[in-house]
Amino acid sequence: MATTTLRTATSGIDDPGRLIEPVLEALNHIIVGKREELRLSLACLLARGHLLIEDLPGVGKTTLAHALAKVMDLSYQRIQFTSDLLPADVIGVSIFRRDNGQFEFHKGPIFSQLLLADEINRATPKAQSALLEAMEERQVTADGSTYALPTPFFVVATRNPTQQIGTFPLPESQIDRFLMQITLGYPGPTEERELLANGDRRTLVDEMDSLLSVDALLNLQAAVENVHLSDALLDYVQALIAHTRESGEFVQGLSPRGALALIRAAQAWALMAGHDGVYPEDVQAVLPSVIVHRLDPAQGRDIDPAGTGQAIIDAVPVT
């Protein structure tokens, strides 16, 4: 792995922590008591990944997405996925203009920097895949023309727990496109009391200042890829991957794409933590949310999905 040792550290960014901490602070003011989840969301964004939130309605998913857009000055759109949603509703539609006799492409809501895809598993697979393919390619093809999506392009999708009625499960190959999946959950009693006392957060979102420019965000994203990966760390990551494949705990092990996602997320986390290289702790921090939606416990293993990541971490020694 000689190439990894040649990589230089975060060039161009003097102190990423100085840029990111205020953002986290502001978000934390809106979504109370979810410091860790916010950090993960931000890491996901810096790693150029997309975020999947699996949760009950009404715990602040929309607020989080909106706040992220606001604090980083990103254009924001929201699509509510329903069972009758069509691909054109997502990517746009060509309309015949009678005045010049030509078709004109009307861009759909996907053409935004931050897209909230709400309740994605309520839509049919056809509509789901329209979104998911655009996420991977970062471009949209309609009527033979290709339209690039704006940069940065960040999708926050929410899904209802799959046990709920009226949901189409996301295929494994598509769910793989999300870098992380997190769960917000109910707030703690103190935070909930504060929430109840201070009223609707959405008004607070509207009052938020932009704290990070798009340029700075793009710089940070570039810096993530340059965070150093040492041989020792790659050994550790490979041991983790091998465990998912060989332990028999999962139907299938982590794919190479999943492994790459783990590395990328850990790099983002390391950058935010101000580490010059990726530490094993950085990998451990992001691992649960990177793997939770990618690995299915093998039959007969009654593992709480939320505990899966910790189980893997506990099983693999840090060397």
Binding site: T5, R7, T8, A9, H228, S230, A232, L233, H275, D276, G277, V278, Y279, P280
Partner: peptide, 10 residues
């Protein structure tokens, strides 16, 4: 240790 083992100029 972190520097020697995990950082670029280890």
């Amino acid at each position: 240790y972190m520097k020697a083992r995990y950082e670029p100029n280890g």
